[in-house]
């Protein structure tokens, strides 16, 4: 890795200024930045360590939601009692991500900024073509080994899968990303690749993530994150779903439902179509299957990733079943 200057940000404003400097990159947990620097994907001139900033790692619950400081560690959020009680999908997404060590290092803000695991993106020497790394250079993945690449939200420029787990839960639960003064809905924070896959997040130079805000809802309280992968642990999702549901007093009619997908799309993938057909419906196996089939509307297959389509539909269906009230067939 190229050598760099190292300094510690003295304040949030200091960090913000650093984020606007050309060649400077913020270092939080380091699990993405140092990894990518070793791969040769990132080559910062200055690394600004923000982990010593105080007050950005708190988890503050209030009656309308929770505000999680950007520097809170994944492990701390995963085990927070309030998170487990009111936003279980968030906790489940977190403890199923990475490993215990990485979760002790990685911060919530940094986790949202993690980059794709596309093998072609991660190896600039072997694969010079990558529109994400080098806009206009092409995409080495298309036509290559694509079993882990996205089926949703792809473009001719990029088919790289967003690797996030937490982000999927946040998008499902209508979270907001707090960028100092500005707030962006989680769904809008993650950008489609389109013709500009190098731009992954709706964050401007000089902005930093300071917190994540998740609103309280009955659906969030009754939420889950289901992650399917070949290895039992320490692997990215082959497909995942975050589902939150609220039922009418009858215990079977769906009042509110949120569904987002992971491991299959270029960004955390909210599926309003699934939600729309289930809202107001009584839960039944037929209704679930009908709705789950809508999860992959518009999917495009690249090479050998066809399996992801049926897989994620089944993951959605199972996640819904896992959250249904007891006694409903």
């Amino acid at each position: 890795m190229r050598n760099f200057a190292y300094r510690r940000a003295g304040s949030v404003d200091d960090a913000r200024r650093a984020a606007a400097e050309a060649g400077a990159m913020l270092l939080a947990g380091g699990t993405t930045l140092l990894d990518l620097a070793k791969c040769g994907v990132a080559a910062p001139e200055t690394v600004v360590d923000i982990t010593h900033l105080r007050g950005l790692d708190t988890i503050a619950h209030d009656p309308s939601g929770v505000t999680i400081g950007a520097l809170a560690k994944m492990s701390a959020v995963a085990t927070d009692r309030g998170i487990c009680a009111h936003y279980p999908a968030v906790s489940e997404a977190l403890w199923q991500a990475a490993s215990a060590q990485l979760r002790n290092m990685a911060t919530i803000g940094g986790n949202l900024m993690q980059r794709t695991r596309c093998a072609y993106f991660r190896d600039p020497v072997a694969f010079p073509a990558c529109n994400k790394r080098n806009p206009g250079s092409g995409c080495a993945a298309i036509g290559g080994v694509t079993r882990n690449h996205a089926v949703l939200g792809t473009s001719q420029s990029c088919i790289a899968t967003n690797p996030g787990d937490l982000a999927v839960a946040l998008v499902a639960l209508d979270a907001e990303i707090v960028l100092g003064e500005r707030r962006v809905a989680a769904d809008a924070f993650f950008l489609l690749p389109g013709a500009t896959p190098q731009r992954e997040h709706a964050i401007e130079p000089g902005e930093i993530i300071t917190a994540i805000r998740i609103p309280v809802s009955a659906a969030a309280c009754n939420s889950t994150y289901l992650k399917v992968r070949g290895r039992q642990s320490y692997e990215f999702a082959a497909a995942s779903a975050a589902v939150g549901m609220e039922f009418e007093a009858d215990g079977r009619t769906i009042r509110d439902i949120r569904v987002a997908l992971g491991g299959v799309a270029t960004k955390p993938w909210r599926v309003h179509a699934v939600e729309a057909v289930l809202k107001g419906q009584e839960l039944s196996p037929e209704a679930i299957d009908r709705a789950a089939a809508l999860a992959t509307e518009g999917a495009v297959i690249h090479g050998d990733n066809r399996t992801k389509i049926s897989l994620v539909q089944r993951v959605v269906a199972r996640a819904i079943i896992n959250r249904k009230p007891r006694g409903i067939a």
Partner: peptide, 18 residues
Amino acid sequence: TVHVDGQRVLACLTLAAQ
């Protein structure tokens, strides 16, 4: 794996300076 402030972390993705 080492402990930093009592927490298990990976030394390969941690800068000495940190």
